[in-house]
Amino acid sequence: MYWKYAVRRVIYAFLMFAVIVFIFSAIFNSVADRVMRSQIQETVNGESRAFLRQGVQRNQDQFLVWKAQRTAELIGMYHLDEPLFSRIFWRTIDTITFNLGQSTIIRSSAGEQDVMVIVTERIPRTLLLFGTVAVIDLILGVFVGMRKARKAGGLMDRTTSMGTMVVYGMPAWWFGMLLIMLFAFTIPLFPSGAMHSTPPPEGIGYTLDLLYHMILPVLTLVVLGFWGVAYITRNVVLGTLQEDFIMSARARGISEQKVLFGHTLRAAAPPIVTMAVLGLLGSLFGAIVFEGIFSWPGMGSLYWQSVQQNDIPVLMGNLSMTTGIYIIGLAFLDLIYGFLDPRVKVGGKA
């Protein structure tokens, strides 16, 4: 049953998320504690200033006692007075219920300090950019990969393989810098960054403006990204082309085009999906800081911002959310795989 498999996979993904968040909480426990305590201190100081402004007269002792009580109360509320394991546990619970706390400096576009809001408003922007890139990479990569496999060892195959190797270790952000210098300054064709013009145009112009701003970053990532997909596709397809059923299909006189795109691609799809998309997922998450180069206001830029302003809660909230999206991506991949290759569901125990 496909849905049973799907449900199992989703539950598993959630468990994995919980475990990883627990590990994160353990690694960053002392930092998180420190930040939390200083935030509590700030809250209490703010409250006492408010009291003083209202002119509430208290004697010094009473005031100090109140201050200590209030601090202790807040510390208790955030479980900071509990033993190590319990602190880690509560932080894990907080994170997986998306209660990510307050930022120290960074604010959302509406001015809120809730880390969850700050991070979530950036998710769609990142998904838009990288999703577009992934789709183009995949289409272009599979297409080129098939062409490569058809004449393996030929000129096209060799040159594109060379391309794969040349860009293999090239950081996307560096290539982005080059393209900005070239196409935004030397020849001013595209904007050098950001997601919209200021002020953004209304109506259909808004979308066009967005697309116009997307061209250069998407171009950068696609130019570097599709080679990998093409190479993997080529290898998988080449393996499949040696199977007997391909030979029999050819023997039956089925056109080469049909053999390639009908028979071969169909059989090769599951491994292509896992290997290529998995590689894509990894490389795109490895390129996430690339957003900073194009001042694209997504999650990757948030890493820059929170590192520069040393905003630990935002940094860790962003990490948890990025990890969550990554795990969803992996689960989604498995679900597609299971859909394309029914054997997976049966082989769950092996």
């Binding site: 990883i20 690694i27 930092v31 998450f285 860790m316 990490l319 990025t322 992996l330």
Partner: peptide
């Protein structure tokens, strides 16, 4: 192994380095 695979590499490296 699966736990390690499910952690996005660059983000965790950034946060570890920042902290």
């Amino acid at each position: 192994y699966e736990i390690f695979v499910s952690i996005p590499l660059l983000p965790i490296m950034i946060v570890l380095s920042a902290v």
